[in-house]
Structures are given as structure tokens and as C-alpha cells.
């Protein structure tokens, strides 16, 4: 399983806009590189990322091979209610990885 890192403030004020940072370890193989025998290395990237906040989608990204290895994404959302942020990455094989983070709104 690739390792994912998430940074979310532990506590935010209601109505505040806060930043969410995510990183997942992945080679993001482009499909245009060749190995040392000259054969193309098949493409293998994370092509989709979704973030939901208490079940509602707040951010989604379709990614292409031009995203650097270990895809890093930063985005924002508005604090509404305490609850859970769920992050899901999907690769070219359809494999998904899910991470969760708690958020407390005061």
C-alpha cells in the first residue's frame, strides 16, 4: 500500500476557509519512458483523487502523467460541521486507497 500523508487543521472556526494538503507515494510512471532494453515502461499513474466532507464531494481531480511522482495536492474548503474528511486515490488498475481525517468545528 502506498503511504499517504494528510494535513488538516485539528480545529477550525465555523465558516472559516481552511487548507487541506495531501501527498501519496506513487511513481506516476508516464508510459513514455523506456527501460534499459529499450522497451516502453507501461503507464501506471494515479488518475483520480476525490475528497468528501461528511459525505459531500468538495474536491475532485483528474490527473495525467504530467503530474510529478508522489502526487501532492493542496486545496481549500469551508468549515461547516465537525465530522470526517475522506480522501480517495484511484490508480490505472482501478485500485483505490482511502484515508480519513477528523475535523472539529468550533
Amino acid at each position: 500500500m502506498p503511504q499517504a500523508l494528510i494535513r488538516v487543521p485539528a480545529e477550525v472556526k465555523k465558516g472559516e476557509i481552511f487548507e487541506i494538503k495531501t501527498l501519496i507515494s506513487h511513481a506516476m510512471e508516464t508510459g513514455v519512458r523506456r527501460d534499459n532494453t529499450g522497451r516502453l515502461i507501461p503507464r501506471d499513474i494515479i488518475n483520480r483523487f476525490v475528497c468528501t466532507y461528511n459525505g459531500e464531494e468538495i474536491f475532485r481531480a483528474d490527473l495525467f502523467p504530467a503530474i510529478a511522482a508522489n502526487p501532492f495536492l493542496t486545496f481549500f474548503t469551508v468549515a461547516r460541521k465537525s465530522g470526517e474528511l475522506v480522501f480517495q486515490w484511484t490508480d490505472d488498475h482501478g485500485t483505490t486507497q482511502t484515508e480519513k481525517a477528523k475535523i472539529t468545528v468550533v
Binding site: A61, F72, T74, V78
Partner: peptide, 11 residues
């Protein structure tokens, strides 16, 4: 729901 239209990544 984003609040701010700003995204960062590395390409």
C-alpha cells in the same frame, strides 16, 4: 464548498 478557488500541485 471550496471557499477559495486555489489548487497547488507539482508537475
Amino acid at each position: 464548498r471550496a471557499g477559495r478557488a486555489q489548487v497547488s500541485t507539482r508537475i
